[in-house]
């Protein structure tokens, strides 16, 4: 495919020009830049239209909701850069949540509950990896099947929902509390999101492991020939995605105060939508955590804005679709103009 032919580094052409031009070029020249602009314009618009929007409370609530999609999205981004995908993350919201709540009820310990969720995530991730890499079946199909299996397990383990019987005071704070109160209150889910963003952002951009992920996605054969342990790295990405999805599930049960077996229906498409919107591609080799974060914030802002401006909340689903279409459209036009194929 002609997509493999990349244009020379753009910074070379920009060296002679003023820094403003260079800045603008960078802003419009990448998916992240375009997303940043859209988010900025949207925030300014909402600030001018609503007094409530730019308050600590509203932004905190909005970002808390975004955090679950973003955290799962970070794992999914790494997986999709490596040219794999995981459709089982939605069912994981149910199964890991139900299991964690059962563990919490049995043990009355927050740590045990969290570990139970993460263990479920790691195991499902490992199964996804084993079936994809061991049996050499496309991960799209494996995880489509796992999506049913994990959902089925959630249904099997409880009839409807596992209620909070442990009444741990610290449990509610997982979603509603804030570890940092000053100078601004940062809700725990947002703090978690930021920490995970920084950790995996550094891993992805600063370590051999991170670079290997891009190399694998760009050209798996070349990566394998140059000595990169392709399967091991992909397996780690699968397990990370599973565990981050389980972490989101843990935050979800803290928010709902119960582990529901129908939680996260359609979550996988929202996550994948955000990752793709953030600049990743199913063909692999592309994508950044910044892009995923911005895309998730964009979708969260849109939903928040619809409610704040008093529009019918039925518009939320439609606007999410229109945002995805607009972003894909802009990306396509941008690539056409800059001559990338």
């Amino acid at each position: 495919m002609s997509a493999e032919i990349s244009t020379p580094a753009r910074s070379v052409g920009a060296s002679g020009q003023s820094s403003l031009q260079d800045f603008l070029r960078r802003l419009f020249g990448s998916q992240e830049g375009v997303l940043f602009l859209i988010v900025a314009v949207l925030w300014l618009y909402l600030m001018s239209r609503s007094d409530v929007f730019f308050t600590q409370r509203n932004i905190g609530v909005m970002l808390s909701q975004v955090s679950m999609i973003a955290i799962t999205g970070f794992g999914m981004t790494m997986l999709m850069i490596a040219r794999e995908v995981d459709l089982s993350v939605g069912s994981m919201q149910a199964f890991a949540g139900v299991t964690a709540m059962q563990a919490l009820n049995e043990s009355h310990s927050l740590i045990v509950g969290l570990l139970a969720a993460l263990a479920v995530g790691a195991i499902v991730g490992a199964i996804n990896a084993g079936a994809t890499l061991g049996l050499k079946i496309s991960s799209f199909i494996v995880t489509l099947a796992m999506m049913q299996i994990v959902r089925g397990l959630a249904y099997t383990s409880t009839n409807a929902a596992v209620q909070n019987e442990h009444k741990l005071a610290s449990f509610k704070k997982v979603f509603n509390g804030a570890f940092i109160e000053n100078p601004v209150r940062i809700p725990n889910p947002v703090l978690t999101m930021v920490i995970i963003f920084i950790i995996f952002g550094l891993i992805l951009s600063r370590t051999t492991f991170g670079r290997s992920i891009y190399a694998i996605g760009g050209n798996p054969e070349a990566a394998a020939l140059s000595g990169i342990p392709v399967n091991r790295i992909k397996a780690i990405c699968f397990i990370i995605t599973g565990m981050l999805a389980a972490l989101s599930a843990f935050m979800l049960i803290a928010r709902m105060n119960s582990g529901q077996n129908n939680a996260g229906f359609g979550f996988e498409l929202q996550v994948i939508g955000s990752v793709l919107l953030g600049g990743a591609s199913l063909a692999g080799g592309k994508g950044t955590l910044v892009g995923t974060l911005l895309a998730a914030v964009l979708l969260g802002t849109v939903n928040n804005g619809i409610v704040l401006l008093g529009y019918n909340s039925n518009w939320q689903t439609a606007v999410v679709g229109l945002m995805i279409l607009t972003a894909v459209f802009l990306d396509t036009m941008r690539r056409r103009m800059t001559g990338q194929s």
Binding site: L269, I272, G273, L276, L277, S281, L282, N312, N314, W315, Q316, T317, A318, V319, V320, G321, L322, M323, I324, L325, V328, F329, T332, M333, R336
Partner: peptide, 26 residues
């Protein structure tokens, strides 16, 4: 336009479903 089909139809999927919600008020 040359947009990627998976992404485009994912967007259309949400857009159509959303319009159905808006039109029928659920």
């Amino acid at each position: 336009i040359g947009m990627e089909s998976l992404m485009t139809t994912l967007g259309m999927m949400f857009a159509i479903r959303g319009l159905v919600y808006v039109y029928t008020n659920q």
